[in-house]
Write a protein that binds this DNA or RNA. Structure first.
Lengths: 343, 343
DNA sequence: ATGAAAGCGCTAACAG
DNA sequence: CTGTTAGCGCTTTCAT
């Protein structure tokens, strides 16, 4: 087992731009132009240079490029540690996937930064140190846009709207939380349910607020009682407890809209404990459309949240801003109701 | 809604090392020494320099540093696109989390690269272009270590053992798949079950092979029949089908070990279809310990795989290698049986 | 359209 | 222990 540090094999000297210039018989400046796709280079020369590049297997040195051009071609993805723990949250995984996939087709590179209390200064320095051209902040449920202070010096795109009404220039991509919640509730109403409760998320998180709003709006529109609200914190356990309280308040509840799938899963438990069945006695609709929804028994009807698309949209917006192209400071992605067996 | 590209506010000139030198009355070299924690600097000077740094809010420029020192302080995390799609796989998310968390405490930065067919050359160039000091490859189930060609020029640590017996110098962190499978099977045996089947994974994936091996070993040790094997491909659907075949071959099966939780979930379905119950009629044990296990009904007894730790171990090993410290080329992380309701 | 020259901000011998 | 001196590899005016 016990090998020690490998003897680095003699490294072929990394080809430099200078070597390419020599081989193709032009100046370094010209090679640089070719590499950067300048249009003012004679086709013949372009070809000659490209041949030399291929022959030498030349790869431009990113650091040198960054240093000389003062552009980094890199984007930071900041994940608050609290969220990192919830990294298990499929939402993140998918969002990151969307970001990464989008960026894979560009010249940008993705640097992941986990920010914790102990290294927040490090993160800040990193961002300010000219290491990236912009940053993406995924805060998921918490609408904390405290990086705002940096946004003067660096473009930042957030996932999810800010908690506080913003100045209109904060960049973010959000999903239509209230619209999704309304659709979910209307679906329940359409099923003929009338005593519809909701397990809401925390009021200090935009999705919590917006989803509750959507439910309420739908209920009001039909003139239904919108008082059956209990709060959870987006965890399964909190969903179960909220559902128990709900059932205690009104045992005749015939439907419930949970602000996320985990809480809906918790609701399942509470409903079962109460000796009632989903969906016959209580119809359930969740929000997110993640594993919980697909693997629950019965499978959960829920509001699909386009997380991959959200990641892609965030990345796209940031690149847009970085490159000085016109952009919309924020947009809202549509959600769709996915019908399964629970409602 | 329609704002246009923000007018960049007048940027305070980024402080340079030179400015710090001027302010503190020493040479740039000395400032550099202080910044890099050289021990050969007079305390008084160190303090003076640090004061100047604080005052100017100086942050070293990473690009310049990389260029001059030829070290990048960056690590690439390569995710094959096929896996990226399965990014939804909690295993990945957790592994990435482990990597990121470990790196957060070091001076290294994490760059995520999604490799697809269309950009594999780009990835290769990136790695070879001196952009990172090393790379982490997560291939999960497929033991594909095809980046081996690069490992001459760049240290690479894999997650999971290679499919083919390696030269002994491939760097990887694996989990004890066979040991976990054995433990799972022994648990089933301990429950008094005797007709124990297994839903194996593909034979071209190390975890598939190793988990089957573990099951077989446990069965042989007790002199039990080890012929009840059906293969799946780690998906839920394949698990359901395998279980149906198994039940058809021998309806009296009283336990099954599935090579992962998703397939175990599939087995649940097939068992229910056959009018049998878990765990009364058929005890089930899975492998992975992810959402599927926790949210299944009844909750799944399974083998816990330390994915976060695996990510951290991979990162730690790579850093070790990069920094020229002694290291073990590969290690195997322990798995633990998590008892729940299915067995 | 191309080349020459001057750095980008930092580190790393090498002196002293 | 500290300062001097060269670059690291590339981009970018400015001439030509």
């Amino acid at each position: 087992m016990g090998a020690q540090l490998g003897d680095k094999p003699a490294q072929t000297p990394t080809p430099t731009l200078e070597m390419v210039a020599a081989l193709s018989g032009v100046s370094r400046a010209t090679v640089s132009r070719v590499v950067n796709g300048s249009l003012t280079v004679t086709p013949d020369i372009v070809e000659a240079v490209n041949r030399a590049i291929a022959e030498l297997n030349y790869v431009p040195n990113r650091a040198a490029r960054m240093l000389a051009s003062r552009r980094t071609q890199a984007i930071a993805l900041i994940v608050p540690e609290s969220s990192a723990k919830v990294f298990a949250d499929p939402f993140f995984a998918q969002l990151v996937q969307g970001v990464a996939l989008h960026l894979a087709d560009t010249e940008y590179t993705l640097t992941m930064l986990i920010e914790s209390e102990t290294n927040s200064e490090k993160t800040r320095r990193y961002l300010l140190g000219g290491n990236v051209d912009g940053a993406l902040v995924v805060s998921h449920h918490t609408g904390d846009h405290s990086y705002a202070r940096l946004s003067g010096s660096l473009p930042i795109v957030y996932g999810g709207r800010p908690l506080l009404p913003d100045d209109g220039e904060t960049l973010y991509i959000d999903v239509d939380n209230s619209g999704g919640a309304m659709a979910a509730t209307e679906h329940l109403i359409g099923l003929g349910r009338t005593r519809i409760a909701t397990i809401a998320g925390p009021v200090d998180m935009p999705p919590g607020v917006d989803r509750l709003l959507g439910w309420r709006r739908a209920m009001e529109e039909r003139g239904l009682d919108d008082s059956l609200v209990e709060q959870g914190d987006f965890t399964l356990a909190s969903g179960a407890e909220a559902m128990r309280r709900l059932l205690e308040r009104d045992p005749r509840i015939d439907a419930v809209f949970a602000a996320n799938d985990q809480m809906a899963a918790g609701a399942y438990q509470a409903i079962a404990e109460a000796g009632r069945r989903v969906p016959d006695d209580v119809a359930v609709v969740g929000f997110d459309d993640n594993y919980f929804a697909e693997t629950a028994t019965p499978q959960l009807t829920t509001v699909h949240q386009p997380s991959v698309e959200m990641g892609a949209a965030m990345a796209a917006l940031l690149v847009q801003v970085i490159e000085g192209k016109p952009y919309e400071p924020h947009s809202v992605l549509q959600t769709t109701l996915v019908r399964r067996a629970s409602a």
